[in-house]
């Protein structure tokens, strides 16, 4: 178990370093922050002064060395836009993002999983087709289109809800629904597929043949076995809690981490972008680590798997 956990941790650390390194190089090769932040009309001496002040005139490898050196001292850099600590800027925005992504995650789980199970249990029926029709519609409509549609109906036409901003809880309703519906659709599809696969297994037939009530078969045998692929998807969703609302935050003018990321990327505010990516990578990697551990809990075969026994039953 310790070896399992240790190898996962090492892999997680390597992943985070790779993400941050990739972002560091790409951001520096794709535009000069001095020119972008100072604007097209900035006098050349102002641009040069800016570059010198932020060390942008140094070779990229030296900047990279300094950056990683600072990270290990707990310094994630300062925003080039307003001089504040990048981590402070990011942490200020996280509550706003979580105020959308956590309720949206609950909607995804609360709608998607029951819908997928219901569709699988009523395979090829009207219910199945109706659920899948809605699921396909839910995940094929891009979130910005769905968001705008909801705004047109509920804000512009009916005037029930605000179209954007973050002044009250009412402002959060439309963005939460926009994110929740798409994710629920994805979960419904995955849950249905997983359930159908499990329901076709011999042990389900055996349990039924032995006279186990159908409800008990579903709850006791089908659901735990169908949970593994669903947990994988849920893991991704949990991992994207911090930066999973980039599009929706822009559509609804919601000042969360997603908006900050868009602005920071557009301005090449390097420290802020890198700080967000570091947090996102860490969250995603942690979520995946937890999912890996959950696999072991959900499926005893994975827990007790001999070292080299792969594939053979």
């Amino acid at each position: 178990m310790l070896r399992f956990f240790g190898s996962r941790l090492l892999r997680a650390a390597v992943t985070i370093v790779m993400v941050v390194t990739f972002a560091f190089i790409v951001l520096r090769l794709s535009g000069d922050p001095a020119q972008i932040i100072m604007g097209a009309d900035a006098p050349p001496e102002a641009v040069d002064a800016f570059r010198t002040a932020w060390g942008l005139d140094q070779p990229v490898w030296l900047q990279y060395f300094h950056y990683f050196g600072a990270i290990f001292q707990g310094d994630l850099g300062r925003s080039m836009r307003d001089g504040r600590d990048a981590i402070v800027l990011v942490m200020e925005r996280i509550p706003a993002t979580l105020a959308l992504t956590i309720p949206a995650l609950l909607i995804k789980l609360g709608l998607g999983i029951p819908a997928g199970i219901t569709a699988a249990l009523h395979r090829n029926s009207f219910i199945d087709r109706a659920v899948m029709l809605m699921a396909v519609a839910g995940f094929t409509v891009p979130s910005f289109v769905l968001g705008l549609l909801l705004v047109l109906v509920f804000a512009v036409q009916l005037g029930w809800l605000p179209s954007g901003g973050q002044e009250s809880w009412r402002h959060a309703i439309l963005p939460i629904i926009t994110m929740g519906v798409g994710g629920a659709a994805v979960l419904a599809r995955f849950t249905r597929s997983a359930m159908l696969e499990v329901l076709g297994q011999p042990y389900i037939r055996t349990a039924s043949a032995k006279g186990v009530p159908w409800r008990a078969v579903v709850w006791g045998h089908a659901l735990p076995n169908a949970a593994i692929p669903t947990v994988t998807i849920v893991g991704f969703m949990v991992g994207s809690l911090i930066a999973g609302a980039v599009v929706v935050e822009s559509v609804f003018s919601w000042p969360g981490v997603g908006r900050l990321l868009v602005v920071a990327v557009a301005n090449r505010d390097l420290a802020v972008v890198q700080c967000i990516l570091l947090l996102v990578a860490a969250t995603m990697v942690t979520a995946n680590l937890v999912v890996d551990l959950l696999y072991g809990l959900l499926d005893p075969r994975l827990r007790n798997q001999p070292k080299r026994a792969t594939g053979a039953a």
Binding site: L148, V151, S163, G164, G165, V251, F252, S253
Partner: peptide, 18 residues
Amino acid sequence: FVEVPEVSGRVNGLFSGE
């Protein structure tokens, strides 16, 4: 002054009276 980056957001907010 409120920051609304998308044109559609600004126009919709105007129409909805915000």
